[in-house]
Amino acid sequence: MHKIFSLSRKEQLAVQFILIAWACVVLIPLGVAVINSFKPNLGEVYRAPLALPSEWTWSNYAEAWVGANFGGYFLNSAIVSLSVVVIVCFCASTTAFVLVRMPFRGSALLFACFMIGVIIPIRLALAPLFTIVKGLGLLDTLTGLILVQSASMMPVAVFILTAFLKSVPSELEDAARMDGALPFQIYWRVVLPLIRPALATVALLSFVQAWNEYFLPLIFLQSSELYPLTLGIAEFRAQFSVQWHLMFAGILIMLAPTVIAFLLASRQFIEGLTQGGVKE
């Protein structure tokens, strides 16, 4: 590295000070959550929120998981998120495949419609969306929620996949066409393996988005046995807002999957952040 980027001893010290300061801002809330979630009783949380537990215990996690039904919420979140990932990956890749490789009259218009979905957030169309879901009898069902959340991810997913597909040459698909492969076969045997990197980004993006979504479940679910974690934790807070040790445990249960996903695939994450930055 050139010397313009290297720092003198003094400069290094100043820079480290600022960087550590922000690292503390980031880490302290998470650290406080971790230590307090292991405390045996509420008194200790209130008395000394910054101190280590006098005795480390998993009981808050057990209590949250079973007593506060975080186990059930977790299952619902998992069902919704995984379904959304599968649906979005399938629907967006078939759509992008046809739009890029088998264009027809009107395909540019169709793509423009998808781009409108990128531009205008679906939340603003809350009232008509609610009416449609209700009309289809899908209110207060996981199916309805899954479809709505999948649809909200479609524009960005189609955008990422069409851009990727345009960047790879079509000779492989031409070769398959010469050999008599039909679109289903080309999609399944040629295109799907080809777009795997972009598909991984889309899968990660839609998983995190679906797992973290609060607003859409709030609108479309009423029965608490269907609640995902985002609603479950809000419900828990409304009822037991003083049970901080349980809140901390619940929050950490909720964070675990996305943090793990991030640790496993931080590179795709950051790529997705810049590509999918179109919509947050």
């Binding site: 399938f90 027809f104 979905g117 009416t131 649809a151 909200s152 479609m154 189609v158 679109p183």
Partner: peptide, 22 residues
């Protein structure tokens, strides 16, 4: 081609595009 296009278009159309237009 139509079969490949249908699921994505229906999903997006009903639960995203139609509400925006509505």
């Amino acid at each position: 081609r139509i079969a490949l296009l249908t699921p994505g278009v229906l999903l997006f159309g009903i639960f995203n595009f139609l509400p925006l237009v509505a």
